[in-house]
Design a protein around this nucleic acid. Sequence first.
DNA 1: AGTCATTTGTACGTATGTATC
DNA 2: GGATACATACGTACAAATGAC
Lengths: 252, 252
Amino acid sequence: MSDVPPIALRNGLPPRSRNQDVIERIKTYILEKNLRPGDLLPTENELIAAIGASRTSIREAIKNLSALDIVEVRHGHGSYVGRMSMNALVESLAFRGLLSTGTDGKVMTDLVNIRQMLEQGLSPLMIETLDEVELANLRELAVRMRRLAMEGQPYVEEDRAFHIRLMNAIGNNLVSQLTEAFWQVQARVAPTLKVEPADWLRTAEAHEAIVDAIAARDLERLQHAFATHYDPIRESIAAIFESRAVSLGGAE
Amino acid sequence: MSDVPPIALRNGLPPRSRNQDVIERIKTYILEKNLRPGDLLPTENELIAAIGASRTSIREAIKNLSALDIVEVRHGHGSYVGRMSMNALVESLAFRGLLSTGTDGKVMTDLVNIRQMLEQGLSPLMIETLDEVELANLRELAVRMRRLAMEGQPYVEEDRAFHIRLMNAIGNNLVSQLTEAFWQVQARVAPTLKVEPADWLRTAEAHEAIVDAIAARDLERLQHAFATHYDPIRESIAAIFESRAVSLGGAE
DNA sequence: AGTCATTTGTACGTATGTATC
DNA sequence: GGATACATACGTACAAATGAC
C-alpha cells in the first residue's frame, strides 16, 4: 500500500485474479501497520487511490474479508479491522448441517460427537482446575435448567452459559470460542430436529450429573455424564434420519 | 425465489440490508431445491430476475457466500454449490494468528495447545481402533521424517499426512477436517516463527514415539508423546515473544 | 486452428441511505 | 435541520475466461 503499483500486471508467477490481489493488499496493509481489531481502515476512496483498483473491486474484496470477520463494515461509518471471530465457521458449518439434515444427518452426528469428545478429553483438566466458586455457578445454572424443564419451558441461554463456563476453566481462548461456535451451529440446526419435551428434562438432569461428577473429582463418572448428556440429541437426529429412510424406502 | 417480490421493502421487523436479504434468499434456494455440493446454481442474470436485485447486490452476496465456501464461482463457467470446507476457518484463524505474532503470540500458543489436547483426548480411541496396517503406514511416515530431518531437509507433507491419518481412525469427518484446518493455520503462520534445525529432528523423533506408544497400547505413554511432540513449536513461539518483550522493554 | 455465445470479472457514473457534527 | 462524509445500490459498458461448434 505504501508502494502504489497502479494496475500491476503481475507478469510473474501466480496468475491470481484482481480480486485476490486486492484482498492480499488489504491484509498486508493491516499486518504492516500492525493494526488491531477495531482500528479504522482507509475509506473506499482512499483504498481506490492507494491500490489503484476500481470501487467495485475494492468493495468485493472487502465483502470477502468481512465474511471472514477480518474486516468489519459499518454503514455510514467506515471500515474497521474485524474481530476474526468464529462467525465464518458457524455460518459455513451451520449451512452444511442444514443441508445434511436433508439426507443422512451425518454432519450433525459428527458435530455432537465432537462436542462430547472435546468435553470428555478435557475432563481431567476440568476436575483439576474448577474451584468451588465456579462449581456453585454451574450448579445454579443446572438447577435452573431442571426447574425450567419441569415447567415445560425451554432453556437456551443457560445451556450455552453452562458449556462455555466449563471450557473457560481450561484457560484456552480458542477452546472456548470453538465450543461456543459448535454450540451455535447446533442451536441453529436444532429447530429442524425432533426434540421431545422429555428430552429437555433428561438433558437438564445430565447437567446436574456433570456438576456432581466434577465436585466428586471422579473422572470416569464425569466422562460418562458427558456421554449421557448428548444421548437425547443423538436420538433426535437419528429419529429424523429413520423417518426419512422409511419414506424413501416406500418411494423406491 | 419461487415468489418474486421485486424490491420488497421489508416494512416488517428485521431491518436487514439488501445484501443480507439476497444472501438469505440464495441460501434458501439451495435448501429448498435440496442441492448438493457441486450442483449448478442459476446465472447472475437469472438471479437478478428471480430476486429482483441489481447485479451488484447479487455479486456481493455471492462474494460473501463464496468466502464461506457455500458457493463456488468459476469464471466464465457459472456458480456452483460449494463444498463448505473449513477454508473460511483457516483464512480467518490464520490471519488472526499472524496478527497475534505481532504482540503476544497467544493465539498460536492456544492453537498448538488445542491440537495437543485434541490428540491427547482422542488417544484412547486411537489405541482402540488403529490396526497394524495403519500403524505400519504411520511408522513409514515417521521414519521418512526422521531421515529427511537428518539430511537437513524439511518435511511438510509427511507431517500433515501423519496427523490426519491419526485422526481418520476416529471415523469422524469433522474431527479430521478440523485437524487439517488447524494444521493449515499453523503451517501458514510457521514461516514467521523461529524454527531451529534441531527442532525438526526432535519433532520427527516425537512422531516415532507416538507410533511406538500406540503399538504398545500404552495410553499414558501416548499422551506424553503428544505433549513432547508440541514442545519444540511452543518453544519457537515463546522465543519470538521473548525477543519482542526484550526489545519493547528497551524502548520503553 | 477459429469464431461464437454464455457467463463471470472489472470499471465507471450516479443516486440514495446512513451516521456524525 | 443542514452539511458533510461515508457506505450502499443500480445500470451500463466492456474485458476475460470457458465451452461448443
